[in-house]
């Protein structure tokens, strides 16, 4: 029993990170139908920038806030310089553009930062809690609550605020949104900023546990994308569930079956799910007009 609990703790911690990356995908996808493959780089930038600002002598909270702000700015620039000029381009074009952006950001990070692996201290120390024979790091609790807070915050933003509703309106029908007076360009910029900030927050929360370096983004984008698709693209709740599920599948496969094939297990589950539910777990059925 205690080992099962240990696998669950491990799966939830890792899964929460996937969920945050998947949420980042969802925000941008909803506002612009773009799948942003540079999403993993936002996580990397959040962690790496915090490391370097922290090393320069800024307290950890200030460093984290600055790093998130910096990443959000980069998100806005990405939208302004690469996505906006390509409006109306095909889906595949946009995918290649964001892949190009991720290569670009990685290349920049290895020059501005470095190619070493980094870490900063955990927020509340490294002494694990002992729960029914399993151990949980205080930082894991930070990650879990951080992910929950981000999710609830986003939910409230989209359903309770006028600005949030404007984003949803833009996502539904760009032209109609503009007709009722919504500044859709601003909404796009806002979505990229928000998505980048969510990614950077994940980077800040998780770096004390998983460490960071300039090239961690590739794998995270892959897993986050898979999580978003498993949950159903465009559905924030689906992103959350998809991320946690993949984390749990990986951890229990590594624990009970074979650590060699834990990534394989996650992808097999995704494939089987999509065969049965082609829109993912919580995705909406889309209609094609002729």
């Amino acid at each position: 029993m205690s080992e099962f609990l240990q696998f669950v703790f491990s799966g939830l911690t890792v899964g929460a990170v996937y969920a945050l990356v998947a949420l980042g995908f969802t925000i941008i996808y909803n506002a612009s139908s773009v799948v942003n493959f540079a999403q993993g780089e936002f996580v990397m930038l959040g962690g790496m920038a915090t490391v370097f600002i922290f090393d320069a002598g800024v307290p950890i909270w200030g460093a984290a806030a600055l790093a998130i702000l910096l990443t959000a700015t980069i998100g806005i620039l990405l939208n302004k310089l690469a996505i906006e000029p390509a409006r109306g381009a095909s889906v595949v074009n946009l995918i290649i553009i964001t892949i190009g952006a991720s290569i670009f950001l990685r290349g920049l990070a290895q020059i501005v930062f470095d190619k070493q692996i980094h870490r900063f201290p955990a927020f509340s120390g490294d002494t694990p809690f002992n729960i029914a024979g399993a151990t949980l790091l205080p930082q894991s609790i930070w990650v879990l609550f951080g992910a929950a807070a981000v999710f609830i915050g986003l939910y409230a933003f989209f359903t309770r605020t006028l600005m949030g509703k404007a984003v949803l309106a833009t996502a539904n029908n760009r032209l109609a949104a503009r007709l009722v007076g919504i500044n859709t360009n601003f909404i796009m910029a806002l979505s990229f900023a928000l998505s980048a900030a969510v990614g950077a927050t994940a980077g800040v929360l998780v770096t004390p546990i998983t460490l960071t370096s300039y090239d961690i983004g590739v794998m995270l984008a892959l897993k986050g994308f898979a999580a978003a698709m498993l949950g159903g693209m465009g559905n924030p709740f689906g992103a959350l569930v998809g991320g946690l599920l993949i984390g749990l599948i990986e951890a229990t496969t590594a624990g009970y079956l074979s650590s060699d094939y834990k990534d394989a297990a996650a992808f097999i589950v995704i494939l089987l799910t999509l065969f049965v539910m082609p829109q993912g777990l919580f995705g909406q059925k889309s209609m094609e007009r002729v």
Binding site: P85, A89, I96, I97, G100, A101, F104, G107
Partner: peptide
Amino acid sequence: HEYEHVMLGLIMMLVMIFMR
């Protein structure tokens, strides 16, 4: 040299933006 990847990413983006 070290700007190799930056250039590669930039070229990919520029081609896709300006040559759809």
